[in-house]
Each structure stands twice: as structure tokens, then as C-alpha cells.
Design a protein around this nucleic acid. Structure first.
Length: 521
DNA sequence: CTAGGAACTTAGTAACGCAGTC
DNA sequence: GACTGCGTTACTAAGTTCCTAG
């Protein structure tokens, strides 16, 4: 290991860092090259938060950096045989990839335990930088059928914590999260399994059921905007926000978690009323993703929000009479099984269905796919599904622009040639002096048209690229859009389903493939 | 009711891998 | 054959919901 012998004389502070790194380097996680690159910038923050070191400026990171370079190089120079061996080693684990459930072979989702490493967390996480310890067999509880053979423990001399036979749950194994020992990590079946497929279908069926109730629910909460009972008024406004803005429920959070909010936990400072009836939202939601939105609301809602805010500090709860449990209890009175998250599914799916039916004009496959992507984007924006702009985005845009300029140059040249050809003159010589083929005006005009079409396509591509640089389309596709909407639409408009769903989505949504073409959400 | 345990879905991103390019 | 651009997959964090004991 790198720091077995001290490479240089270190100050006590440097020594502490070095020791820490030595521990880190002894973990699986650190052997991944990207780990260094992506977390390097955070080391200072991480160590600063969890250690008493004040000044890290003079710490010697160089040996660690060099160690990583060496590892990288080693991997690069690995012979094909060694690489093959590495792959085979991984394939050995394949037997852990499957489970027999009621006699059917099903794929297991996450069958490897999480390797040790540094916990980063998302956003300003209080536990950032904690060492995530290795999980041993003695930490793991296994859930299998009564007569099923107990999986062999892969570590010689060690054994599982416990073997259970609980057929009322779907997990295959669990262990306590080393970062927060009160929480659990589970091994579940993969998304493509019939168990998951079934519950997925039930989720969408529930959301479809909401369709039949939604008008009544909206009427009810609109009536209650002015209810004399403060709790009822808050329930009404919260339900309105969840319905209109697709906000999450918003459970209470502990002090040792990142400070984020959902609907029920919104703070006074998160919602600014701007007369006459605009609400300005600004808060950190799940994964510390910022939600910023200015929306026009009905006047009674605006008034109610103003009143909920009066006499409170910025950090106080906006809905002080409310929590997710009370809200969901109320929702259940309106429709069996209704909870806050159903609104997100409902609004996402209904929006897709609606936009597809309104905007599909019966064009070709490419045009239909543009319609689909547009609808998908609308949903992603409603649900606030964001992604960080890729590092190479601006470079990619520049390259696209260059290519377009290049083509524009080609057009100019072709136009000159066309003018000359019309007069019966031969085309000008190439920039490198070579003569060009003498084309007739018709051929040149055709070429110009072709090139123009190419430019137009590139301009469109450029626009969508820029448009989608911060929008994540995948999340809604995987979790919120009833696949039957997509499948039926594809059938109606002769779009191959493979153009919309990749391999894993096709597997996940296998249950939806035989839907009738007339299916509407 | 409330707190906390348990089980499940939803989420963004690092890493991988493949096709096209030079 | 290395490089690069880009979609896919793996990973695991961060939510929601349900349930039960006190």
C-alpha cells in the first residue's frame, strides 16, 4: 500500500490526511479511476467537514495522484488474456443473477452488495465524507423459500446473519445501511420481473382510477380554499399544489439528512406571493434539485397562502397543521387507495396521452417521434426532472455550428456554379486548384436543395439538443408514463416500439405490449 | 394520535460499451 | 488501433407509503 512507509516528512495535518487516504485506498471503490477525478475537488470539503484540519493547502496529494496514474496505466496495458480473465471472473457471479420465484426463473436486480468507500450524498449532506464500511456476510439476512437450498456463502469461513422464509415480502436479502444503521438496503428482483411488472401495472391502474374522481376532488378542494377550519383550508391548498404542480408529498426529515422539502414541508421562504395572483416557488426538492417556478393561481389560493404566511418566520412551515400522513388520510377518503404520489403519475400520463392525441398529425416516423419527444419533454418539465449539462455540451454545439457553416459555404459555391452553368460556363476550380465535374443546372439545383435540407435538419437537431440539455427524459419514461399509452400510440401510427423503448424498457414493460391500439389513459 | 420500523418506488449520474471516425 | 460521441446499464441515494406499538 502506498503509505506503508512514509514517503516524506509530513506535518501532523498532512499525516492525518495521509492516514485517511491510506484507509481509503484499501477499499474497492478507490480502485475505480473515475472516483479520483470526480471526487478530487470534494476532498477538501469532505475532510474539512469531518476533521479538525484547518488548512489543507500544503498537503501532499501528489503520491496519491501518482498511485492512481499507475493503476490506470496497469489496466491499459493489461493483456487481452488478463482482460478476458477479469470478465470471466465477473461471469462467475452470474449464478447469483437469478432467483426461482414460484417456479419461474426471474432476474435479480442488485445482487452485489455495495462496496466500501466514502459517502458523498447529494447536495449539502451532513454525513458527507463518512467512511462507508465494508458489508460482510454476517451483516446479511437472506429471504428464501422454506425448502430452498441456502445460497452458499462466498467468503470462506464466514456465514449469513440470518435465513428467513417470509413470503409476504418481495426482498431476497437485506442489510443495515452502514451510513445510517437505522435504515436498510435490500436486494429486490429486477424491473423486468413479473412481480415488479404486476405492481407497476397496479400503479397505473390506480392513476387511471383517479381520472374518474379528479373532477369531484378538484371541486371539493376548490370549495375548501375558503373553509373556516384552518386544517381543512391547508389540506385543500396542499392538494391543489400537488395536483397542479405535481409536487411530492414532502415527509419530515431528520437533521442528519440534506435539508430538502416537498409540499407538506414547504417553508414560508419557499413560496413568495406576488400580487395579484402569482406564486413564486423556489426550493430544493428530492436529490437537492432546485425547483423554481412562477405560477398564476386562483385568487382564493393566493389569499390562503398569504394568510398561511402571516406571523411566521421564513424558515417556518407554510403548512403548519399538515403532514403527509394527515394529507394521505384525507385523500383516502376521496378515493380508495389515493395518496399524494398518485397525482404525479396521473398528471404525467394524462399529459402524454393528451399531447400525443392532439399533436400527432399523421406524418412519417421521424415526425411522429418528434411529437413524442415533445410530449415527453413537457412531462419531464412538469415533474422537474433535471440533469446536469454534460461537460462536452458547449464543444458539441460549437462543432455543430462549424458543420453548419461549412455546409453554408458549400451552398455558396454551388450557387456560383449554378449561375455559371446557366450561362454555359464551366464551374470554378476547387480551392486546391483541381477542376470540378461539369454538372448541368438541374443537377446543381438538386444538390443545393439537398444541402439546404441537410442544414435545416442540423439546425433542428441543434435546437433540440440545446433545449434538452438540462431536461432528463428518462425518469418519466421509466416511472411515470403508462407504457400502454406509448404502445397503443405506436400501433396506431405505425411507429416501431423499439424507436421509443430501448431493450430494458421493453423488458420492463413486457406486460403492456399486447394492449389494444385504441387504448387511451 | 405519534414515532419509528419496514418495504417499496423514484432519481441522478458514473461507468461501460458500441458504432462511427480519423 | 486509438479516439470520441452517445446511448445504456449499474449503482445507490433519496424519496413515499404502510403498519404497528405505545
Amino acid at each position: 500500500m502506498l503509505y506503508k512507509g512514509k514517503p516524506v516528512d509530513l506535518t501532523p495535518e498532512q499525516e492525518e490526511v495521509a492516514t485517511m487516504f491510506a484507509v481509503m485506498l484499501d477499499t474497492d471503490y478507490m480502485t475505480k479511476p473515475k472516483f479520483k477525478e470526480n471526487f478530487w475537488g470534494d476532498w477538501r470539503k469532505i475532510l474539512g467537514r469531518n476533521h479538525t484540519i484547518q488548512n489543507l493547502d500544503n498537503c501532499d496529494f501528489k503520491p496519491i495522484y501518482e498511485w492512481h496514474q499507475m493503476e490506470k496505466e496497469k489496466k491499459k496495458q493489461m493483456s487481452t488474456e488478463e482482460k478476458k480473465a477479469l470478465k470471466e471472473e465477473k461471469m462467475k457471479l452470474e449464478k447469483y443473477m437469478w432467483a426461482i420465484v414460484d417456479g419461474v426463473k426471474e432476474k435479480v436486480g442488485n445482487f452485489r452488495v455495495e462496496p466500501p468507500g466514502l459517502f458523498r450524498g447529494r447536495g449539502e449532506h451532513p454525513k458527507m465524507g463518512k467512511l462507508k464500511k465494508r458489508i460482510h456476510p454476517s451483516d446479511i439476512t437472506i429471504n428464501i423459500g422454506k425448502d430452498a437450498p441456502i445460497p452458499e456463502c462466498p467468503i470462506p469461513g464466514e456465514s449469513w446473519k440470518e435465513i428467513r422464509h417470509d413470503n409476504t415480502v418481495t426482498w431476497l436479502a437485506y442489510w443495515n445501511d452502514p451510513i445510517n444503521s437505522k435504515e436498510f438496503k435490500y436486494v429486490f428482483l429486477a424491473a423486468s420481473s413479473s412481480l415488479k411488472g404486476q405492481s407497476d401495472k397496479e400503479k397505473y391502474e390506480k392513476a387511471r382510477m383517479l381520472k374518474g374522481y379528479i373532477q369531484g376532488i378538484r371541486n371539493a378542494y376548490t370549495r375548501d380554499f375558503g373553509n373556516k377550519d384552518l386544517t381543512k383550508r391547508q389540506v385543500a391548498v396542499a392538494t391543489y399544489l400537488i395536483d397542479k404542480l405535481a409536487l411530492r408529498a414532502g415527509n419530515e426529515k431528520d437533521d442528519d439528512e440534506a435539508d430538502t422539502v416537498g409540499c407538506c414541508t414547504l417553508k414560508v421562504e419557499n413560496v413568495e406571493p406576488k400580487p395579484p395572483n402569482i406564486l413564486k416557488f423556489d426550493f430544493l426538492g428530492k436529490d437537492s434539485i432546485r425547483y423554481q417556478n412562477e405560477v398564476e393561481v386562483e385568487l382564493p389560493v393566493f389569499k390562503a397562502i398569504q394568510q398561511f404566511r402571516t406571523g411566521k418566520q421564513g424558515g417556518d412551515d407554510l403548512f403548519d397543521k399538515l403532514d403527509t400522513s394527515k394529507l394521505n388520510t384525507h385523500l383516502k377518503e376521496l378515493m380508495p387507495g389515493l395518496t399524494a404520489k398518485v397525482f404525479r403519475t396521473y398528471n404525467a400520463s394524462i399529459t402524454l396521452d393528451d399531447m400525443l392525441s392532439r399533436e400527432t398529425k399523421g406524418g412519417d416516423v421521424a415526425e411522429n417521434l418528434v411529437v413524442y419527444q415533445h410530449a415527453n419533454k413537457e412531462v419531464a418539465i412538469i415533474c422537474n426532472h433535471q440533469r446536469t449539462v454534460s461537460k462536452s455540451h458547449s464543444a458539441q454545439m460549437t462543432r455543430l455550428n462549424e458543420k453548419i457553416d461549412e455546409l453554408k459555404g458549400v451552398i455558396k459555391e454551388l450557387e456560383t456554379d449554378l449561375a455559371r452553368a446557366k450561362k454555359g460556363k464551366p464551374p470554378l476550380k476547387n480551392s486546391d486548384g483541381k477542376p470540378k465535374r461539369n454538372l448541368n443546372p438541374e443537377a446543381l439545383a438538386k444538390k443545393i436543395a439537398q444541402t439546404n435540407a441537410k442544414i435545416e435538419k442540423m439546425e433542428r437537431d441543434k435546437e433540440t439538443k440545446e433545449d434538452l440539455k438540462t431536461v432528463a427524459l428518462g425518469t418519466s419514461k421509466i416511472n411515470y408514463l403508462d407504457p400502454r399509452i406509448t404502445v397503443a400510440w405506436c400501433k396506431r401510427h405505425e411507429v416501431p416500439i423499439e424507436k421509443v423503448f430501448n431493450k430494458s424498457l421493453l423488458a420492463k414493460f413486457a406486460w403492456s405490449m399486447d394492449v389494444d391500439p385504441s387504448f387511451r389513459f
